[in-house]
Design a protein around this nucleic acid. Structure first.
Length: 138
DNA sequence: GCCAACGTTGGC
DNA sequence: GCCAACGTTGGC
């Protein structure tokens, strides 16, 4: 089981939209690093859902339900999409501010590379973030 | 809305 | 293959 984090502007496509859709196609990624991360996702991997621009916090958890396939929105180029399903809202959202003020999370890509929209999350970071979100680690 | 940081493009 | 110019992302 691997952990990931994806960013989306809630005005564009927020966690509520994923809940409404039940299965969301994660397409439109046009960055090679982000694309390669999408391709490394496996069924049932857990994905933190982060609201960028507005909110600036991790709000929910999703699950990979379909592994990488050709991005239907790509007219040219070699791009990939995955499908995600919502698991649940976090008990308490974890803000970027809280993440930045946690020394153990200072090497997260979210902090180091503000522009990467799909990134892996280490098990240690995942555990800590779940704790910060008031989630039972079990 | 601004602008810094980053990635990509294209001229040489 | 270098690097300046440009476009985009996303925090502030």
């Amino acid at each position: 089981m691997n952990y990931w984090l994806v960013k989306s502007e809630p005005e564009e496509y927020g966690f509520q939209d994923l809940i409404d859709e039940e299965v969301g196609c994660w397409d439109g990624v046009r960055n090679y690093q982000a694309r390669n991360n999408l391709r490394a996702m496996k069924i049932d991997d857990e994905v933190f859902f982060y609201h960028s621009r507005q909110g600036l916090e991790i709000v929910g958890i999703a699950r990979v339900v379909r592994e990488a396939y050709p991005d239907p929105t790509a007219e040219k180029g070699d791009w990939s999409a995955v499908d995600l399903s919502p698991i649940r809202w976090l008990s308490a959202p974890v803000s970027l501010k809280a993440i930045k003020s946690e020394p153990a999370l200072s090497d997260m890509a979210l902090v180091r590379n503000g522009r990467l929209s799909v990134m892996p999350i280490s098990t240690d970071h995942h555990t800590l973030i779940m704790k910060m979100a008031g989630e039972d680690p079990s």
